[in-house]
Design a protein around this nucleic acid. Structure first.
Lengths: 220, 220
DNA sequence: CGCGTTGTTGAATCGGTTCAAACATTGTGG
DNA sequence: CCACAATGTTTGAACCGATTCAACAACGCG
C-alpha cells in the first residue's frame, strides 16, 4: 500500500527511462537521529538536501564519523539485519525513505543504486587515504576542500569574495571524522587563517576560503 | 561487522533462481597487477580465492592500501571512467571478470552486487574506525583478527593448536593498510608475541594465534 | 650459495594528544 | 527580550606514542 506521492519529489534514484516514484519523503531537524546503530534495518534512504553523518562508537565512548552523506548519497541498507552505524542529520535535511521490498519491484533501480554505492566507496577510499597518510593540516584541508567544491561560485566571484561556506560540523565532529582531537582541528584552522588560506566567521560553522589553490595543495 | 564472504560459485554473483553464468575466469600470480589507477575502467571483478589489495598513492610516494579484498568481494567498477586505485594480487588469486554491458543483461544481478558493495562499505567503515581511533596495537590486532576469522577451526582444536594463519602482506603493506610505519607494525607484532597472544613463524607471513580472546579484545 | 628483499630492534625526535583555563556563541526560560 | 546556562571554541604547556634514521639479522629466490 505505498501511497504514491504525486508531488515533484524525485524517486529514490533518478533512473532514466523508468520514472519510478519510489519512497516516502522525510524531513529531519538539526541533530535529529535517523536511525541508531543496532536498530533493525528496514529502509534505504537517499539524501536530497542537507548533511547526514554516520557514526560508530568504541566501548569507551571514542567516536568515529564513518561517513559524511551529502545530497545524492544513500545509506541505511545493511547486510546483517541491523544498521551498522547511527545516522544523524548535521543540519536540517530532506530525504527519501524506501523499504527494500518496495525498491526491488523496480529491477533497473538495482544498477543505479549500485553505481551510487560505488561512488560512495570511492569517496570512502579517498577519506581513508587522508586519515591514514596525511598530517593534521592535510586532513582538515581535505574536508574543507570537499565542502568548498559543493559551493564553488563562478571563478570571477571566487577571486574577489572567496568561497563562503557553512560547515555543519563542530570542531569535535570534524576531529572525529578526521581522526584528530578537537584541539588539533582548532589549531589547524587558526593556522590556516594566519596563513591567509581562510577566514573564520563569527558564527559557528561559517568559513570563507580565501586561497582555494593553497587549500587544495595542502589536501594532496 | 560484515559477514565473512565465502562463495565458491561460478557466476559473478550467486543470484538465487537465476543461475546466470556471467564473466570470464582469470588467475593472477603473487604481486601481479590486475589494473592500474587511472586505466580506463572496463570490467568488474569478483575474487573467488586469494587476496587483492587496492592501493592509492600520494605524489611523494606515500601509499595507502585502501581496501583488502577477500573471496566474495568485488571491485573494478568506477563512477568516473577510470579505476580509482591499483589492484594487486597479494597471493595467487582466482577471480571472475565481467564487463558492465555483459552484467546489465541480467537485471536481478544489480541487487545482489549492490548488497555485496554495501557489505564492503561496512567493512570499510570498520577499518576507518580502526585507523582513525585505535592505537597501533589495536589496529594490528584488528587486521590479524580479520584473517583469523577466515581460518577459524573447531573450538576444540583452537584451544590446543591455536589458529594458524598465513598473512599475505609484508610488514610494509600492513603499515600502509593501517596507517602505521612498518617499524611500528614490527614492534607491535613482537610485543604481541612477548605477551603470548601469538607466535611468529620462521617463514614470512606465518603466524599462529595463541590467545584469540585477548587479540579480539585488543581489536575493540 | 649468495645477494637482494624483508624483518627486527634501538635511540632520538616530533606531531598530535591531553589537561587546563579562559572566552565566545547559541539557545532557553523567565 | 534579556540574562544566564549550556555548548562550542581557542590557546598554552607538558607529555607520549609513533616516526625516522640507522644498523643488523633472517628469508628466499635464482
Amino acid at each position: 500500500m505505498p501511497p504514491a506521492s504525486t508531488s515533484a519529489s524525485r524517486p529514490i534514484t533518478q533512473a532514466e527511462g523508468a520514472p519510478a516514484r519510489v519512497g516516502r519523503r522525510r524531513q529531519l531537524g538539526k541533530r535529529e537521529t535517523l536511525f541508531h546503530q543496532g536498530d533493525p534495518a528496514t529502509h534505504l534512504f537517499r539524501i536530497d538536501e542537507g548533511t547526514v553523518a554516520l557514526e560508530q562508537y568504541l566501548e569507551d565512548g571514542r567516536r568515529q564519523l564513518v561517513e559524511l552523506l551529502l545530497p545524492g548519497d544513500i545509506c541505511g541498507l545493511s547486510t546483517a539485519g541491523a544498521y551498522s552505524a547511527t545516522g544523524i542529520a548535521l543540519q536540517p535535511t530532506r530525504l527519501v525513505a524506501a523499504s527494500m521490498a518496495e525498491l526491488e519491484q523496480h529491477p533497473r533501480l538495482g544498477w543505479a543504486i549500485m553505481r551510487q554505492l560505488q561512488a560512495q566507496l570511492s569517496t570512502s577510499h579517498a577519506h581513508l587515504l587522508a586519515v591514514g597518510r596525511m598530517d593534521a593540516a592535510g586532513r582538515v584541508s581535505a574536508l574543507l576542500s570537499r565542502f568548498a567544491n559543493l559551493n564553488k561560485p563562478a571563478e570571477a566571484d571566487e577571486a574577489h569574495d572567496g568561497i563562503a561556506l557553512h560547515i555543519p560540523l563542530t570542531r569535535g565532529e570534524m576531529g572525529d571524522y578526521l581522526g584528530l582531537s578537537l584541539e588539533t582541528v582548532c589549531r589547524v584552522m587558526s593556522e590556516l587563517e594566519r596563513n591567509g588560506v581562510l577566514e573564520i566567521g563569527r558564527h559557528h560553522g561559517d568559513v570563507i576560503i580565501r586561497d582555494f589553490g593553497k587549500l587544495h595543495r595542502l589536501a594532496n
